[in-house]
Amino acid sequence: MSDNKFGQIPMVDLKEELRLIRDPVLSMLTEVLDSGDYILGDKGEQLEKQLAQYVNASYGLGVANGTDALQLSLRALNIGPGDEVITTPFTFFASGEAIAQVGAKPVFVDIEEETYNIDPSKIEQAITQNTKAIIAVHLYGQSAKMKEIVEIAKTHHLRVIEDACQAIGTEYDGKRIGAIGDIGCFSFFPSKNLGAFGDAGLVVTNQKQLHEKLSELRNHGSEKKYHHSSIGMNSRLDEFQAAVLLVKLYYLDIFLHKRKEVANRYTEHLSHLFKTPRTTDNREHTFHQYCIELDNRDELAAALKDHGIASAIYYPIPLHLQEAFHYLHYKEGDFPIAEKTAKRILALPISPMLSFQKQDYIISTVKRFMETNG
């Protein structure tokens, strides 16, 4: 019998977050309604400027979602059929999907065992004459080793796209990620650390030519209305989502600090039981997810569910073993660290709104399970 007095504890408590920001959000949305300007308006421009400044990039461009951000970035770099793009197999499907969408070939490289990010020491052996770029994913909110990745890219004349969809606000060597490579991509899916009330995304760059190309591509290949110089996409960030994000951006650093507090508390109480997230001095972690690793992952997830506590597996099947990528002819055993991690990883609830009382209940439930089953 569950001793849960809190009701269901979700992975991210968006309802509780809304209680905090409801009034300023409604005020901002009312401004949009009254303006009659719903696409590519003032709120979107404000958001682009503020987020570019936030990550120390020269240019920001709002797009429809994080997946489009990745695809537009590849297209802006003229990557397409016959080209290869190196990335990690342990990430959300969109990281590989975007490569395939532009007609290029995803080439996977195994991950670091400690951080779950792409292992730079294994990248060079995957480079061929067809390699054009590296997509570095900052998984769960922790930066990849950008110094090593950028150095490899320079040596081999490759472009670097940062998939920062889970890592807004994360720092690497004192710099916020996103503006370290050629292009940075962000997702504002509602559950992200900076989340909209629907789909939304952003692309940042320090290169004017890339910004102009991205701007054209997101709007049907059009720089001037009804004049289309290329085949683009309809991937414009609407004013309602921009308005929501402007409000939530004000709270972002406060929320990130709270996430770190929650993560540190988990680690303090649970690190002796199983593998908990590792952090380093120059690679910050903003904890979009707090992932533990253990052999009896599925049993713990079931026990948490019985006690009204959500958990999630990010990700149960590495990209190279996904049915959609069978045509690449990868097989089980090709990337052993990613495959082992997929069988052991489990995310616990983490949110700026997670109270210490609820977290204590989660921790005590996990400890009881481990005492019996560890």
Rank of each mutant, 00 (worst) to 15 (best):
D68W: 14
A69D: 06
F93P: 01
G82N: 04
G60A: 13
A94F: 07
A98K: 11
A98Y: 04
D83K: 04
E97K: 11
S73M: 09
L61Q: 12
A98W: 07
A64Q: 10
I79V: 12
I99D: 01
L74P: 03
L72Q: 04
G82V: 07
A94W: 02
Y59E: 05
V63S: 07
S73D: 14
E84P: 00
G80M: 05
S73H: 10
G82W: 08
A100V: 06
I99L: 08
G60D: 08
L70D: 07
L72E: 03
N78L: 15
A69V: 09
S95K: 02
Q71S: 10
Y59I: 03
G62C: 11
F90W: 07
F90L: 15
N65F: 02
V85Y: 00
D68H: 12
F90A: 06
E84W: 00
Q71K: 15
D68N: 12
T67M: 15
L70E: 05
L72C: 06
T87W: 03
A64K: 13
A94D: 03
F90K: 12
L77E: 09
G96A: 13
F92E: 13
G82A: 10
L70C: 12
D83M: 03
V102M: 08
L72P: 09
N78T: 13
T88N: 04
D68T: 09
V85R: 04
I99R: 04
N78G: 09
T88R: 05
D68Y: 15
I99G: 01
Y59T: 08
L61G: 08
G62W: 06
L70G: 06
A100F: 09
A64M: 12
V85W: 02
I79K: 04
T87Y: 01
R75K: 14
L77S: 10
T67W: 10
L74S: 00
L72V: 13
A98V: 12
I79Y: 02
A64V: 10
N78C: 15
T88W: 05
I99M: 07
S73W: 01
T91P: 03
